[in-house]
Amino acid sequence: MTADSFDLAIVGAGIVGLAHALAAARRGLKVVVIDRDAQANGASVRNFGFVTVTGQQAGACWRRAMRSRDVWAAIAPQAGIDVIHQGLAVAARYPESVPMLEAFLETEMGEGCEILTRDRARERVPGLRDDVQAVLWSPHDLRVESRDAIPLLSRWLESAMGVSIRRQTSAREVSLPLIETSAGPIRVEAAIVCPGDDLLGLYADRIAAYGLTRCKLHMMRLRPQREVRLEAAVMSDLGLVRYLGYAELPQAEALRRRLRDERSAALDDGVHLIVVRSADGSLVVGDSHHYADTPDPFAPDSVDRTILEEFDNVLDIGPYSVAERWTGTYASASDRLMLVDQPEERVRIVIVTSGTGASTAFAIAEEVIADMYGT
């Protein structure tokens, strides 16, 4: 059987794989994406769709998030992806949080951001509780509905960018110039493997050297009984000790000590609050973080209650019901946010190890393709 021929094969059709397909197609390469599932089903559609810039670690991660946000904004209208809302409001309930927000404004990452009083913040985030002392407002972040955006991005890459996507196809071996798949061989000049949290598939020995594990998170969709005019994402103090752009500031230690004393259950479950609105008026709320080589499939109600407690601490939106609950998993590392490994001259392994794929993948992909094909 004659093998199909491409310039570049990408294994994995999550956001990291699709980002590499875009970067390569923009350079005029003939690209094939290989994915074992019939449709997007992993971490790329089990998240907030929140392209988070503000709060990402200072330096490379923050710059990648800014660039990836710009790419999302440019391609969304072309691909028929709705940008549902823009901006971020970080609601500070604890006095120890306020010096952190003030210090953040003094960094490069604080450009364009401001601290709002509670009354001014309520104009943008109705329903803020009375004990919210200040709100960091950022215009930089945006939100798409990930379960819609990823399929639409895939279709646009096929129809407008000439990318071939092979679904329900497993890549069994990369041995250039061939990739052996469950649907037969594919002839390629180069390959990029984007396995997500599948750490035991292709190049398992190379991946094992990084000591990765997996993180499980809880998510929910809430349906308020009355309309909630939420025009930006909302976060809370718990996020200030998880997101490294804040947590690495010297002023974070005082908040960290108080949360250890008063919110130990939330910290133990890795809970922090993100709230985003969907086009139908529902709210996507999360999340939590539990780490294991093989996360169990169970979702204790106690974790969801902790998330909802934090939601109710920050926002008063009236009665609501939980319409959906789900979990997701992603690859995680304690010492890095992402990795690029080169097992062979024309092969790369790319894994985002911090849950920031939607926020940084487009910029990572541009860097990888530039490295492989020249700037």
Results as ranks from 00 to 15, higher is better:
E324I: 09
A79F: 06
P139R: 00
V234L: 06
T353F: 08
P95A: 09
S68T: 09
R260E: 15
L217W: 06
D119W: 05
D198V: 14
R260D: 13
I349F: 04
D341Y: 03
D237G: 04
R257E: 15
W137M: 00
P177R: 00
P99A: 08
A9M: 05
D335Y: 14
L18W: 01
R257N: 13
W156I: 04
R118L: 13
S97D: 11
A89Y: 06
D261P: 07
V71P: 03
L339T: 14
E189A: 12
E262A: 11
V352I: 09
L29A: 06
V241E: 09
I179W: 00
Q86P: 02
S282F: 03
R348D: 01
G196H: 10
P300N: 10
R172H: 14
A149H: 01
G374T: 05
R346F: 03
A365D: 02
D7H: 07
A233H: 06
G59K: 01
I192R: 00
G318I: 08
I192D: 02
R260Q: 13
R69L: 02
P343H: 00
Y330D: 04
V271L: 08
L200D: 15
R67S: 08
R172F: 07
V350T: 10
P319I: 07
M100P: 12
E108F: 04
G55C: 11
D341L: 12
L88Y: 05
V347R: 00
Y373D: 02
E248H: 14
H290D: 11
R147I: 11
Q86R: 14
P185T: 09
S332V: 13
L273A: 05
R27L: 00
P297G: 12
R263G: 09
T107C: 09
V11I: 14
V45G: 02
T327F: 06
E108G: 14
R69I: 04
L308S: 10
M235G: 14
I351F: 00
R93C: 15
A19R: 00
P126S: 01
C215I: 12
S182N: 12
P177A: 02
F298E: 13
S264Q: 09
M219W: 03
A58D: 15
L315C: 02
C194N: 10
C61F: 12
S154T: 15
M100Q: 10
M100W: 01
S288D: 04
T213M: 08
A232Y: 06
K216N: 02
F104P: 11
A299F: 08
I165K: 08
I307N: 03
D293Q: 12
N313P: 06
I115C: 07
R46M: 13
A76E: 06
S154Q: 15
L136Q: 08
I192M: 00
E180S: 14
V303M: 02
D197I: 05
V285E: 02
R336T: 12
V347T: 08
V45N: 02
